[in-house]
Amino acid sequence: MTATLAHLIGTVFYVGHLKPAPGTWGSLVALPLGFLVYQIGGFWLFCIAIVVGFFKGWWATEQMTKGSDNHDPSEIVIDEVIGQWVAIAPVFYGAWLLEISTLMLWPGWVAAFMLFRAFDILKPWLVGWADRRDDALGVMLDDVIAGVLAAVGVVLFAAFFHYVLM
């Protein structure tokens, strides 16, 4: 039962088994899932979901990699979901603050997705440091850090667009 639950969480209900590029599939599925959470409970429920998802993902990753040499198998995509949620958080915050639909901020969705994937794949600076930990916490942290860097990029792009170009 524990292994099955860990597998469901770690693969985000088997999304991690989609080929090619399971990490990209995980990031893609994170967007409608995050939208659903936001629609149900708003920005604060979305923030709680990030924290709860991080700890569930850490647990699931530990369970799935226990006794294995591979600390980050490609089918584990819960880390991509949480990292993508961190990246999209400024968009949801902006929509919540302005009391508008998150869909009106669609360029932020695109920027969050593209920046997160770039940071997750290239693993610059702290992202690479976390990935080199070779443990379940590192699996989760590298994507959270990539998400934070992407979120900063989303804010900078929004500021540039709204305050420089407009």
Rank of each mutant, 00 (worst) to 15 (best):
F116I: 03
T61D: 06
P107V: 08
D69V: 05
W58A: 09
A30E: 11
T61A: 11
V37S: 00
F116R: 06
L18E: 01
L126S: 11
V29D: 03
C47A: 14
D79C: 07
G153F: 04
T102H: 06
T102W: 15
E62V: 00
G16R: 06
V15Y: 12
I40P: 04
L36F: 14
F13K: 05
G147C: 05
W106L: 01
A130W: 04
M166Y: 08
L8A: 12
A3Y: 10
G57Q: 10
S27K: 07
W58S: 01
L28G: 01
A87E: 07
H17A: 04
I78T: 09
V164Q: 11
A158R: 13
V81C: 03
G42M: 03
T102C: 09
E80Q: 11
I50M: 12
A87Y: 07
F116W: 03
F46I: 13
T61F: 05
A49N: 05
V37T: 10
V37W: 00
P90R: 02
M104F: 11
V37E: 02
L8E: 13
M1T: 08
T61N: 06
Y163F: 11
I40C: 00
I100D: 04
V127I: 09
V52I: 10
Y38E: 07
F55A: 13
V91Y: 00
G153Q: 09
V110G: 03
V110W: 00
T2V: 12
V77K: 14
W44V: 05
I78F: 09
W109C: 02
G153V: 02
F46H: 04
F54V: 07
A30R: 10
V148M: 11
L45E: 03
A159S: 08
L115R: 04
G41T: 10
D131P: 01
L105S: 06
V52W: 00
T65N: 08
M114Q: 05
W85Y: 13
G128A: 01
G42L: 01
F119L: 02
K66P: 00
G147V: 02
L115A: 12
L28T: 03
I88K: 00
L105W: 15
G147P: 13
A158M: 05
Y14Q: 15
W125M: 03
V77N: 13
L36T: 09
V155C: 14
V110A: 15
A111T: 15
M114C: 15
P90I: 01
